[in-house]
Design a protein around this nucleic acid. Structure first.
Lengths: 127, 127
DNA sequence: GGTAAACCTGACGTTCATGTGAGGGACAAG
DNA sequence: CTTGTCCCTCACATGAACGTCAGGTTTACC
């Protein structure tokens, strides 16, 4: 498949796919005219990349981790790296939980009937 | 307290504190010479701002939410905004859990005794 | 074999939360 | 009154992950 189709299938922009290749995260065969050609498993690879981006990893970190995922590279260094990232994600989840808790407290206050700094009687009447 | 002390106490750079003010997140009294002067509760306010930044909120969003936290502003709009951000954080936590799970799988593989550089004959024992 | 759609490589633009000087006041201490 | 340290306001720089436009080639189809 060519880049446009991969973009459509994954929901990622063509520009982003080229960027992934530039960063060494995604490889493609080239046709005679220089156009990228992807195998079917590129779709899953893109999903994986997106997942790691969504987890807050940088392309550099993803570049370091992908060999571990791909080839099950097994060195003390790679394991340390994996655990380090896992722990970073853990800490991030903890921070997010804190923030969520804080927001929940504010929400609870704003929804409790007695909390009206401005209005409490006609909550339901407003759009 | 002046800006340097606040920076030291919170671990946030002086530049960042000025930026918060620029974004309307943090206010300061000014001395005759124009120097910022903060009350003690500014420390907590900075911590709160940092927490929300850490949760992935933009300064614009934080600017919108802070009045809700401060004054318990209670409008349908503010409640909707709070819930929207809460849900966004929820989804982000879910994504992070997925990524963590994925990393855990890779870690489990790389740590299983039988997972030499290439061999994975005892896959079933790990899951 | 001509055309339109898709693709190519630069390369500059964008947003966000700062970093980093430049050049000049403010203020406590001596 | 001078020194040293902190502070001020511009204002340009940075890095990440793309968006977007320009100018040219390749591919698919008739």
């Amino acid at each position: 498949m060519r880049i446009g189709e991969l973009a459509t299938k994954t929901g990622v922009s063509v520009r982003a796919l080229r960027y992934y290749e530039e960063q060494g995260l995604l490889s493609a065969a080239r046709s005679g005219g220089g156009q990228r050609h992807y195998l079917d498993d590129a779709v899953d690879r893109v999903y994986l990349i997106q997942m790691l981006y969504a987890a807050g990893l940088s392309s550099r970190t993803i570049l370091d981790l992908l060999p571990c995922v791909d080839a099950k590279v097994n060195t003390p260094q790679s394991r340390a790296m994996l655990r380090a990232e896992r722990d970073r994600i853990d800490r991030q989840i903890t921070q997010l939980r804190q923030a969520r808790k804080r927001l929940d407290e504010v929400i609870a206050l704003s929804e409790s009937p007695a909390s009206g700094c401005t209005r409490t009687d006609s909550d339901a009447s407003v759009a």
